[in-house]
């Protein structure tokens, strides 16, 4: 019975939310737009207490029973209590009403937030730069054709996005393209000597051909334009394909949930 009730609530609210987007009944539209979200916020607010209790319970148990890594729990509990004191009891400044002190510069809570919490958060965010570098290194390793394409587009995007990309002359772009083509076709050459000589020949002859054909103004020879094209066309096409898949998946998942077929969320 308890479970049936949960299914009923899920199905009823699901259909109600859907109906709110199509039926012209202001109380229903208002419920979906405002009341329902407020209900959710209220329930979440109560759950916040559960979160806090869970956190304290977990770390107190760890500390009391001296479980593995219990030392870190001291730090968690002390920091937690300290913020409670500065948030609820000690303001640290004259003439500031309780509650408003959370957003007033100079109060103890604000000082802790500004000098401890924010730098720690920023440090974590800054770590992202190093993780991006190590992830890019792994992704750009030439293992197969796809990884090579990724490397080429990555390099072109990087060059095109930095100021130096705008001052690269047309002939240097041509040389870069020749290098890329030879990097992709190098394994097709049976003789290394032939490969090197044709590479050098191409480096000299192709820019001359382009110059005499008077096509140096083509966007193909401007790296920033090429990077713009990579970003706007192939990358957008790929991400839109994923977006369409996500949208269809969301509809199908929602359909399974509001018709009561997907019961795993309720433990079935």
């Amino acid at each position: 019975m308890k479970r049936q009730l949960a299914y009923f609530v899920v199905i009823f609210i699901g259909f109600l939310a859907l109906a709110g987007h199509f039926i012209n009944y202001p109380p229903l539209n208002n419920f979906i737009d405002n009341d329902a979200t407020q209900w959710f916020d209220i329930i979440s607010g109560f759950a916040a207490f559960l979160g806090v209790i869970n956190l304290l319970q977990l770390h107190t148990n760890k500390l009391v029973y001296k479980r593995k890594n219990w030392e870190y729990s001291i730090l968690t509990i002390v920091s937690f209590m300290l913020m409670i004191v500065f948030g609820f009891f000690y303001i640290g400044m004259e003439g500031i009403p309780r509650g408003a002190h959370l957003k007033v510069e100079g109060t103890a809570f604000y000082w802790m937030f500004d000098n401890i919490y924010l730098p720690l958060g920023s440090s974590m965010f800054a770590l992202l730069a190093f993780f991006v570098a190590s992830a890019s290194y792994r992704a750009f390793k030439i293992r197969n054709f796809e990884a090579t394409l990724l490397l080429i587009s990555g390099v072109l995007l990087m060059i095109g996005r930095v100021p130096i990309g705008h001052i690269i002359p047309w002939w240097m772009s041509v040389e870069i393209y020749i290098c890329i083509i030879f990097a992709l076709t190098a394994n097709k050459f049976s003789n290394r000597k032939n490969m090197i000589s044709s590479f050098i020949l191409c480096l000299v002859i192709i820019p001359l051909i382009i110059y005499f054909l008077n096509i140096t103004h083509w966007n193909l020879f401007k790296i920033p334009e090429v990077q713009e094209w990579i970003f706007d066309v192939p990358a957008t096409a790929g991400s839109r394909a994923i977006m369409i898949g996500i949208a269809l998946g969301t509809i199908a998942q929602s359909f399974r949930i509001i018709t009561g077929r997907e019961k795993s969320i309720l433990g079935d």
Partner: peptide, 14 residues
């Protein structure tokens, strides 16, 4: 890039 397997797009919902 960083994981061994990734569920992309609708695979995740399926």
């Amino acid at each position: 890039t960083a994981c061994d397997y990734t569920l992309i797009g609708e695979e995740f919902y399926a």
